[in-house]
Nucleic acid binder design. Structure first.
Lengths: 208, 208
DNA sequence: TATCCTTTGTAACCTTTGTTACTGCGTAAG
DNA sequence: CTTACGCAGTAACAAAGGTTACAAAGGATA
């Protein structure tokens, strides 16, 4: 069995792990690299082995919004969804960290769904997780003020990167939360005054 | 075959339609009646035959937000999702119109998923549709101003009810868009002045 | 070192949305 | 009929967030 499949070995039956090893292509993506663009056709389904990927939505003016992160053991339900329907991607995917993934040709999806119970469970579980993430995103933008969203953003970020130093500019954060740089600077300064963070050039030290 | 299953007859193979007729319970729900409350356990999966159901999210203060509507041929992906994980409902479901549905015991889900290709496709298709609806909801609250959201709300509503008279108070609308009555009154009046709608007591006449 | 570019801080102002308060109208219940 | 209540209109104000403008600091590069 492929060494890379460790994180999936408890999820999938052996025959399936074999098949994945055979047809799956291991791919390395550097931090910041784009994996998927809006409007692009989906030809393979990614299984994350290590690293993290951020999923972004864009409006008609080109403004962005961070939807959620994918981590080890995750797959992209949007991709799943698009594979099935042969539709174009609705989202943009960018590597948040250096990331390794296994790409599965979409032809296998239908086959494995019929053949392997563990695969069906995985797919359903993925859809479930993603729907819950989307609900969480909706909660944030609908029910939270910008200062609370910013705090949540910072805490999500350090959880994903496992590093309490965030290497982003205020402008970077403003894009992902769909607001302006001045607003983020203002709120970050307020957080610093409350002792929650410490501001540096190009990075933010999170103290909680 | 059950007469009620007409809307599904082109989707499912005959053997499956037979099974649905056997184990499915037809249920009638009156407009305004609650089908599912947040925190409630899910014991059956609904297939909509006629009518419409609105799906709502609630925050910690009890404030609501309309997520989307379900119509004939739809099922609730949230329910699907919760069935699998045996988790509690994350949403509230209320009949928007008088509605008929077939309730499927969740035990059948696993079985049918393995047995029927058409069932698998239906489930995947449902997840896909729901994810797209959620994206659309996110677009609205993240990228649109309240006046644009209101216009979209009105147009969604008349599409669902197939009636250009909306029987809601301003307060009703305010709840579903998670804002205040005064704001809705203000924006509705502006829409009336622009000739888009005509306001009456307890109802709104949509002119587009 | 001198220069330039990026990033950050901050003030002033504007727009949108939310809140409070009060009015009057329509309708249902008595 | 009349009382009471729910609904809608509107003004005045408050708060949050977005915009513009400019200054200063930190790095990179010539």
């Amino acid at each position: 069995m492929n060494e890379n499949l460790k994180s999936y070995s408890h999820l999938f039956e052996n025959a399936l792990l074999e098949e994945i090893s055979e047809v799956g292509l291991v791919k390395h993506v550097a931090e910041g690299e784009k994996l998927m663009e809006i409007g692009q056709y989906v030809t393979a389904m990614p299984l994350l082995i290590s690293g993290a990927i951020k999923i972004l939505r864009e409006d008609k003016d080109g403004d962005e919004l961070l939807l959620y992160f994918l981590e080890k053991g995750d797959t992209c339900a949007m991709t799943l969804s698009c594979c099935m329907g042969q539709t174009k991607s609705e989202i943009r995917a960018i590597a948040e960290l250096d990331t390794e993934l296994i790409m599965i040709p979409i032809q296998k999806m239908e086959e494995w769904t019929a053949k392997y119970k563990s695969w069906r469970n995985f797919v359903f579980e993925s859809y479930h997780t993603r729907l819950m993430e989307m609900l969480d995103t909706i909660d944030s933008i609908a029910f939270l003020n910008m200062d609370e969203r910013l705090l949540k953003y910072l805490s999500d970020k350090i959880k994903i990167t496992k590093d309490n130093i965030i290497n982003s500019t205020h402008q970077d954060i403003a894009y992902e939360l769909h607001t302006s740089r001045v607003v983020i600077s203002r709120l970050l300064k307020a957080l610093e005054n409350r002792g929650k963070i410490k501001l540096h050039r190009n990075k933010i030290e999170v103290l909680f």
